[in-house]
Design a binder for these strands. Structure first.
Lengths: 219, 219, 219, 219
DNA sequence: AATGAATGAGAGTTCATTCAT
DNA sequence: GATGAATGAACTCTCATTCAT
């Protein structure tokens, strides 16, 4: 499963290098990145509200005040984290999809990737899930754009499938996109509960794709 | 849509006897109920952490201290609320399902009911969604049993469908149950974002059922 | 010198008893008063910024949080203190002046009273002096009205003196009022420096009055 | 009014040689001076405590750390500023007074100068006023000597007037000096409040001098 | 000398919880 | 049972100061 590389190379590719400067100025400030990585860990472990800024600082190996050099508030740290990671996810998915020809294959891949992410980056997955629900206000005001962008990627695949005749056309691509995301997120939630067998990831991915693709089939 | 009765009869049975029902049991300790109803409102509006105990007290028309006569802590209030409402939901769904004969009809009804709940009891739906994500710890320690019980209801319908030959048998009923719950919850989330057209409730319910039932069909 | 009583009976007279209720309901909440009295002490000792809210709380014998039940912020505490005490000062001066017939006697009395206040309520005097300079913004936004009201009392005495022919009429009463206040405040400042002989209060008061009254004389 | 020259020649001598003065000594370490000039501005605008060291640094066009090459602390910067400017004021006043023959004329000139300072160097005047009240400790420990020296200048003029028979001898020169300073400072305060008419500077100066000189007259 | 990113102690404020009435 | 004033622990954020470059 391709989740692991996503966390490294491809997802970070476009994070800071705006212009492809030949003489890569060796961007200083890995601090921001260290803080974000630490935030993922502690937010996942304790949740946003139960996490103290000093916890993040300690985990990042920086002073409390340093966090405020990169983020204006604890809340901004959360939002930045969300945006940063969803950006990476979108970038990675966008890079993966063109390799596949059919909409069916692409949808299957999306499911595979998002569930793979749950496996390989457990903490990131938890944070994303949690972030989306911590505060409706936060979500509405800041996270919505990036979140919508990701949903758009899924919806686009569905729409293409409809155009090509692979998928039935009597359903709304956006509705399906939201339902797919929700289904995947729901699996994450129950895994977080520790009840379901986490090993069955491949099986889960396959079964979900099977049901979904048959459900969407145009025949 | 059958959401309305649910909101009235079982879910709010003793809450506020507007009409003078002949044999109304008229529970005397309505304080607890008033507090729970107030909690639904303010938690839905502001979220759990942003809500102060005094906000709940004010909304319930009781003193701050009174809340601690019925609940041991703010957290306990949240958990009690969750358990109380999921119990009602299970009771209502359990009462509705026997009226339908096929597993297909029952699954369609579950989707209809849960989405209907979003419409008719917006606040309750938000609280349930929010509660489930506030804190993994809270979820794991307290909410899991009731939540699992609800998932079990869905899974049971799927299993029955498989036994009767209505549904394909190559998928895990529990996996499907979690995915269905997640998909419905995902729709709630995006509605909370205010982006999707909330009017399309019937259409959403129908489309989702169509896709799901075809996806689960045994043929 | 009449400064001492001012701090007690007369100055507090109008503080809370809005209507002269016969059955004095024994107003609860001496807390507010205790906090204000504590604030005078610690603000005078350490200045506003160097004083921690917890210092005031400790001095008042209340919990930190209690202060916020009566004042919205540390700043509001300072402003309230200022307003409260200037109100008392005005009330006391206003009660004293009618006992004297000539403007000359009244001006002499004002000087006497304000300097007496410096002696008997050293801390209060320091706080008032300090408050007026801590923050121009604070002063402009909140303290100005009460402060102006006190200046007005002085200016009014000067004006009356001019009307009666006791004082020269070629000077602005407001200008003189401000200068008198400043002169008195300046003496307080240098006393705070600990350099000047503080015992010479009566002499200072007399000399200042002598110079001022001759300076203002209409002949 | 002679305030302008003071503001230029002695007080700002090396600050910003706009015209190419022939023999300009052109001090090389203008950093210290730039910092002090910046400090006057920002302290006057926001007060000492509300001003951040980085604000001063930015206004001076230097790095935060640079300030600590010239001043040991923020407090030391304030004290240095005070001492520096009072020294200049004393130097200027000391140079001006010998030009006048009578004590009456000299006192009138001092009033004129200090009030003129309020007009022409608003910021400096505010800083001086503010500095004196920020903290009794600061004042006592550091600012007192220079401040006393300035008071001494005024007291000396009064004393001389008494010796020459121009002024009454039944008042303490130091008391009068402190009162005069306070009166002038009090006018500054109310001007800072924005209430009084600031245009009436000449009138204020004249009226104050008139009252004071008549009050001090030996007849 | 100059820089400014990093530090971390410290303070104001909030609010869940208690308990005397 | 009910109240709500009082409590005080805990947390976010600020900013004077330092020091590696």
């Amino acid at each position: 499963m391709a989740a692991a590389p996503m966390a490294d190379a491809p997802l970070k590719k476009n994070t800071r290098a705006k212009g492809a400067a030949p003489v890569a100025p060796r961007a200083r400030s890995d601090k921001r990145e260290r803080i974000l990585n630490a935030a993922v860990k502690v937010f996942a472990r304790s949740g946003f509200h139960a996490t103290r800024v000093s916890d993040v600082a300690k985990a990042a190996g920086v002073a409390d005040g340093t966090i405020y050099l990169y983020f204006t508030s604890k809340e901004h740290l959360l939002v930045s984290l969300f945006e940063d990671r969803v950006e990476r996810l979108i970038a990675f998915v966008s890079a993966e999809l063109p390799k596949l020809k059919t909409a069916r294959a692409r949808l299957r891949r999306i499911i595979e990737l998002q569930l793979g992410l749950l496996e390989s980056e457990r903490e990131l997955a938890e944070v994303m899930t949690v972030i989306l629900r911590q505060s409706t206000r936060l979500l509405k005001e800041y996270a919505a754009p990036k979140f919508s962008a990701y949903l758009e990627v899924i919806a686009h695949v569905v729409l293409e499938g409809q155009r090509r005749g692979e998928f039935r056309s009597d359903v709304s691509p956006h509705l399906i996109a939201r339902a797919i995301f929700g289904a995947l997120d729901g699996l994450a939630l129950t895994w977080a509960l520790g009840k379901a067998d986490r090993g069955g990831l491949v099986r889960a991915s396959t079964q979900l794709s099977d049901v979904l693709l048959r459900g969407l089939s145009s025949t």
